[in-house]
Design a binder for these strands. Structure first.
Length: 838
RNA sequence: GCGGGCGUGGUGGAAUUGGUAGACACGCCGGCUUUAGGUGCCGGUGGCGCAAGCCAUGGGGGUUCGAGUCCCUCCGCCCGCACCA
């Protein structure tokens, strides 16, 4: 009240005039964006002489479709905050942007409307560019590209050929996942619960010749190198599970009738003596041959046919009763010569291991269920604590029924001995199996990078010569896939001379999975305008690996695994500095923005679009609110009111700075300070410390922003008290400075009004340690662990002093007097707890 | 089934190592100023109770002087994998 009443009439008049100078993001934001664009503020050179540490901050590149949605606003708000913070803490920061521009939605749109995917993609990219600029994201736009541009996919093709030349890209016939809606094959990673990830259609298994990348060759390295990267533990776990390494043994069972041998993979060679039957997958190529001449032919053929056409998902259900039929043959158990009856059953999968298993019903639940259903013998070979305990028993114990050589050995020890024994006999060896399979990259679709291979009747698979790259995507009339790639219809394009022998030959018509494009785009940013090479290794050496990668957890397996594989393979091929083995040194996965607890989706009609939001409140408000709503790695529920609150806060900060710039003399913090000065300076130091640690050590932007709010709350004219103008200006400047990674425009404007300086050119503030050290604190006084009183006490007071203070207060006396004190606990600078006998 | 995460006011959330539960904000209530109105400013706001106080972090139990935090157990929600031999 006092300061308000003291104001002269002239000042109120000035205030009334100021009322028109309200916080106006529509004016502020474009003005600063223009400065940054004209000066190329966020551009960074590949300058090896720059002594500042390099920092590569990258958000997952967007798939350009329609308009950016709220998830884009979140990921780029998080990434931009990191980029700004890194810059202001003395690093030179690479923060680029591009577009994952090939893909099915644009192509499906083309099928529906006839609009070329190139045109719809260009339109989407334009609207993304517009929004990103409108949001004021600090991007080095000189490095921008789309993966659909020939100058980029030329190098995607080059990488393919490099992998091809080293045998890491190859063609094979295999049982593959066919999506009947998208009419293309899919990688295993793109099939969820037996359904195509995009279309939701049940996938069919087809035998087709397709292109693969040999990611399984890198299984162990992909597994081992997870320990060295700073990724969320659950993402690492998902990758480990996906790779699915298991150690065990390969054991060979011979079928003497046919003179054939069948290896099986088992993680439990210690149970080999307990094998009582043998099972093959319905897809196993020998199944029909085995049944031949046994009288079982028809039963087997019927079972196999039924299994092959059955729903893949239903078949995979572990609760489904076990079914199968006998093959009428036996195999020999190599450890004891027993003849084991052979079965075909759909609980054995062709894709894992060898497509055949030894069945040990006593110690495996699935084998037990099968044995139970078909009344097969069950033989215990591992003793339980209770020797007659229930079977199947999957725990550990000493071996029984395994012959004099192994009986009595603890099963885990016996495991090694049995494998050695098998090795000696030539019937088995230690072996490792993976769940991971090679990455199927062919797509029978139009809008992707053409595979640069020519099929020649004489020469076979011939790589397109480097001079002929890029193989440009031809224009076609009809984008609709008809069980083959739409490219096959472009006959002028398909028919070429073999580069090797000159004879008539045909181009490969499949395109690559778009995940191939996103497996190396982060390398291209390092040297985005290089026409001579995909990148200069020296440029890559300056920036890679990405210091902070940010994106959605939905890519935990697909993109993040493929990119790791590419990085290792390209490093092995000598195209990357040897030290670059991992693409992303640190990963942050942001949560989704929900609406009323639900995912936003057009069909639910609960979508919050960023554009109207930014239009209404400004980019700073939208960005800050989205960071303030909760910890960025968690899902968060959207609230319109919350955005309004953030807008009020930014307005208050801006107004306080503008008023201070007008009304308070531009003085420094005085040498001798009063209590109110000290309070503001201490609060400033506290906020600097809090924001710095929230930014640097964790990504707690919500609490960082809350700390700035607390600081600003101390700075309203009514709360400033007698603080000197210099102190107020310092504290306001600190608030603007601390907020700049989240709200770059209003911070720049407020800071400039206050100081005439550019906030983004200022080093990150450092708290004065003397001001962080409080000189007094509120001593919490407890009796039996319950708070009974609080008194002020000097920092660093001794144990006895604190006890004396606590015991002296009247309230404490009422709880202590007349009771025996059993124990006194003192936590320095915090609390005293006096334990009394009740 | 296996693995991981989560559960705190009317709401979003805070509480770095066990030490004042509910920072900051939304919403709501009251007041002031100004206005045509939004805006702005000040104060209040977990529940019960007149108060002293008691109760409160999904439920139950435990360890401890002290538990949102550690342990056991149960319930609920979310995510990933799943007949992987």
């Amino acid at each position: 009240m006092r300061s308000g009443l003291r104001r002269a009439p002239l000042l109120s008049f000035a205030l009334a005039m100021d009322a028109e100078r309200r916080y106006d993001p529509a004016e502020i934001e474009p003005r600063w964006q223009r400065v940054w664009a004209e000066e190329g503020t966020w551009e960074v050179a590949n300058d090896a002489t720059d002594q500042r540490p390099a920092s590569y901050v990258l958000e997952m590149l967007p798939y350009p479709s329609g308009e950016p949605h709220i998830g884009h606003l979140k990921v780029y708000s998080v990434g931009d905050a990191v980029a700004h913070f890194h810059r202001r803490t003395g690093r030179r920061v690479l923060h680029p942007m591009g577009y994952d521009a090939f893909g099915l939605p644009a192509e499906n749109h083309a099928i529906a409307t006839g609009v070329h995917p190139r045109d719809s993609t260009a339109a989407a990219i334009e609207s993304f560019q517009k929004q990103f600029r409108r949001w004021g994201i600090s991007i080095d736009w000189t490095r921008e590209f789309g993966t659909h541009e020939p100058r980029v996919y030329r190098w995607t093709q080059w990488i393919f050929l490099e992998l091809f030349k080293r045998g890491l890209a190859y063609q094979k016939q295999a049982a593959v996942n066919w999506d009947p809606v998208e009419e293309t094959v899919l990688a295993n990673e793109q099939v969820k619960d037996g359904r195509g990830e995009r279309s939701g259609a049940l996938v069919e298994v087809r035998q087709l010749t397709q292109w693969f990348f040999a990611i399984t060759e890198y299984a162990d390295r992909l597994l081992d190198d997870l320990v060295g990267i700073r990724w969320p533990e659950h993402v690492k776990t998902m990758q480990r599970n996906w790779i699915g390494r298991s150690e065990g043994a390969q054991v060979t069972f011979a079928c003497d009738d046919l003179g054939t041998e069948y290896p099986v993979f088992t993680t439990r060679p210690d149970t080999l003596f307990g094998a009582t039957f043998f099972v093959m997958a319905p897809e196993h190529p020998d199944v029909l041959r085995l049944a031949e001449g046994t009288g079982r032919e028809q039963a087997v053929a019927e079972y196999v046919n039924r299994a092959l056409i059955a729903d893949k998902q239903l078949r995979g259900d572990a609760d489904k009763p076990k079914t199968g039929v006998a093959l009428g043959r036996t195999v020999t158990n190599p450890v004891n010569g027993e003849q084991l009856p052979m079965y075909v059953a759909d609980y054995v999968l062709m894709e894992y291991g060898t497509g055949a298993i030894m069945a040990v019903p006593a110690h495996d639940e699935r084998d037990f269920a099968f044995a139970h259903a078909y009344e097969l013998p069950v033989r215990r070979v591992i003793s339980d604590a209770d020797p007659d305990g229930e079977l199947p028993y999957t725990g550990d114990g000493p071996l029984v029924n395994c012959g004099p050589e192994f009986d009595g050995l603890p099963n885990r020890e016996a495991l090694g001995s049995i494998v050695s024994w098998l090795e000696g006999q030539g019937t088995g060896s230690a072996s490792v199996n993976y769940r991971l399979r090679d990455w199927l990259i062919s797509r029978q679709r139009y809008w992707g990078t053409p595979i640069p291979i020519i099929h020649c009747a004489d020469c076979g698979l011939v790589p397109v010569p480097d001079a002929d790259l890029p193989v440009l995507l031809p224009d076609v009339e009809d984008y609709k896939p008809k069980g083959r790639s739409p490219l096959a219809a472009a006959e002028d394009w398909v028919n070429v001379a073999c580069p090797s022998c000159g004879a008539a030959a045909k181009r490969e018509t499949d395109t690559m999975d778009t995940f191939v494009d996103s497996s190396w785009y982060f390398l291209r940013y390092c040297d985005a305008n290089n026409d001579e090479a995909a990148w200069d290794p020296a440029a890559v050496a300056q920036w890679m690996p990405v210091d902070q990668y940010i994106g959605g957890v939905e890519h935990a397996i697909l993109h993040l695994l493929y990119a790791r594989f590419f990085t290792k393979a390209l490093s092995d091929l000598g195209h990357l500095p040897a030290g670059v083995q991992e693409p992303f040194a640190a990963l942050f996965t942001q949560g989704m923005i929900l609406r009323d607890g639900d995912k936003m989706s057009k069909s639910k009609g609960n979508v919050v679009a960023p554009a109207p939001l930014v239009q209404r409140f400004g980019a700073d408000t939208a960005r800050c609110y989205i960071l303030f709503i909760g910890p960025p790695d968690q899902d968060a529920d959207w609230s319109d009111n919350g955005a309004e609150g953030m807008h009020r806060f930014l307005g208050r900060l801006w107004r306080l700075c503008a008023e201070a710039a007008d009304e308070l003399p531009a003085e420094a913090v005085p040498d001798t300070i009063g209590a109110d000065d000290e309070r503001l300076l201490r609060k400033s130091a506290w906020a600097i410390d809090k924001v710095s640690s929230d930014m640097g050590e964790r990504f707690n932007f919500n609490t960082a922003i809350a700390a700035v709010m607390e600081l600003v709350n101390e700075l309203t004219p009514a709360k400033r008290g007698e603080a000197a103008p210099g102190s107020v200006r310092f504290a306001l400047g600190t608030a603007a400075s601390l907020l700049s990674p989240f709200a770059p425009h209003v911070s720049a404007d407020a800071y400039h009004l206050l100081t005439g300086e550019r906030v983004w050119e200022q080093p990150w503030p450092v708290a004065d340690p003397a001001l962080l050290q409080a000189e007094g604190f509120e001593l919490v006084c407890q009796v039996n662990g319950k708070v009974r009183d609080r008194v002020s006490a000097p920092t660093g007071a001794s144990r006895d002093e604190l006890l004396a203070l606590a015991r002296a207060t009247p309230k404490m006396r009422t709880y202590i007097d007349g009771h025996d004190v059993i124990k006194e606990i003192v936590v320095p600078d915090k609390l005293v707890n006096i334990v009394v006998r009740p």
